[in-house]
């Protein structure tokens, strides 16, 4: 499972690097927030998979909507002059570490 995920990530990276698209700098900030949300979704999905309570709909919708919402929130924050992206960073950052912790415990139990 772990190797499988890393493999898919690698393929994605290779595709991304060879894409002839260059992200404009103004959008790079929103992209980084979206990536954080996406990373959180993936780790959440893996945790749920290990908990045996994986729900495909929740996972996919969470991935798409969380990313868009996070990027949209950051954009809205920029319009309003409030650094709302900090909220996204804190929330997703905390959840990321929680999920990582749970996954680590599962892996330690397993091996």
């Amino acid at each position: 499972m772990g190797i499988f995920i890393v493999f898919c990530l690698l393929i994605g990276l290779i595709i991304g690097y060879n894409m002839p698209v260059l992200l404009p700098v103004i959008y790079a900030k929103y992209m980084s927030i979206a990536i954080l949300a996406a990373l959180d979704s993936v780790l959440g999905g893996i945790r749920a998979y290990m908990d045996k309570e994986f729900d495909n709909t929740i996972f996919i919708s969470g991935f798409i909507i969380n990313s868009l919402l996070a990027a949209g929130l950051a954009y809205l924050g920029d319009r309003l002059g409030v650094e709302l992206y900090l909220a996204a960073i804190i929330v997703f950052g905390v959840r990321l570490f929680q999920n990582l912790g749970i996954i680590r415990r599962y892996l330690m139990k397993k091996y």
Binding site: G12, L13, I14, G16, M19, I35, A38
Partner: peptide, 10 residues
Amino acid sequence: VCLVLGIMLA
């Protein structure tokens, strides 16, 4: 999803 995440990261 990992694939998409990879592309975004790249």
